[in-house]
Design a protein around this nucleic acid. Sequence first.
DNA 1: CAATATTTGGGAATGAGTGTCATTCGCAAG
DNA 2: CTTGCGAATGACACTCATTCCCAAATATTG
Lengths: 149, 149
Amino acid sequence: MPGDTDHLSEIHLEIGSRLARQDHRYTTGRRHLVSVLAQAGQPMTLPDIVTADPDLAQSSVYRNLDVLVRSGVIRRISAGGDHTHFELAEPLLGHHHHLICISCGGIEDIHLDSEVEMLVDQSLTDIASRSGFTPIHHSLDLHGHCADC
Amino acid sequence: MPGDTDHLSEIHLEIGSRLARQDHRYTTGRRHLVSVLAQAGQPMTLPDIVTADPDLAQSSVYRNLDVLVRSGVIRRISAGGDHTHFELAEPLLGHHHHLICISCGGIEDIHLDSEVEMLVDQSLTDIASRSGFTPIHHSLDLHGHCADC
DNA sequence: CAATATTTGGGAATGAGTGTCATTCGCAAG
DNA sequence: CTTGCGAATGACACTCATTCCCAAATATTG
């Protein structure tokens, strides 16, 4: 797959500058964590992550996930299973939604027609303003059974 | 508010028959649990529930929430805060979505235009069938800050 | 290189949620 | 209305995902 390496280094550059802006260091461990998430291409749990790169220490991964979530670089997904899922944030991955399997807990990314997307966003914005609610982002998940379950 | 008592007893009747169909009993404790959720009119956490009715025992509430979720009477909502939220399931409450406050963890119910709702549902169904995914229900949440935060 | 601040990682601590089990309850048959 | 029995209860022990702690290691600044 040509271009992949470039894409990954773009991501690293972008994340590095975001972290620098907030006085955080983009260390080797954080870089590896981001690489694992970027290469997986789908949301991962903590066990997924340390399995993919066993050099990563559990406590550091949890701590770094937290730092990166706070920095807007990683997104936390609570799907109801035992473990929380994490993926690169939307500025890096583009806006999308999820298919969540209620049997195996797996999560897959999906994309909606931009037409439908805009309608939804508009509706939600209207509703929010009526309640004095300040929207930050929305999530739309389809729960069911994946092809393997 | 005229009609409320009737609405509550309708709910109890409906739940009673659903439980009976699955060889479960609609005991006093379960009835109280359902009453608390019905009267709150918004998703509640376990502490919310036992605070609202201190006669309810924590372990029994957890166990009964599980039974009622399995019976399709209560819906479990994982919003990312410390505690899971619960509310009456959609057959009883009607289809709706949520405003989730990322400061205080509070959740409020909202309703989308049925037009938008159908479009979303159609899109999701299409996407799901393309992946061999069997849809059960979707969730659409708007995350942000509520009026009080 | 020295001084300073951030990060690391192993293990202990926390706490939401689940399991256990003796007691109690609810229902149905007599 | 009693009795019998499987389901439900509740106090408490336990599990395990996640967070906390802190001494050692590493990065940045002067």
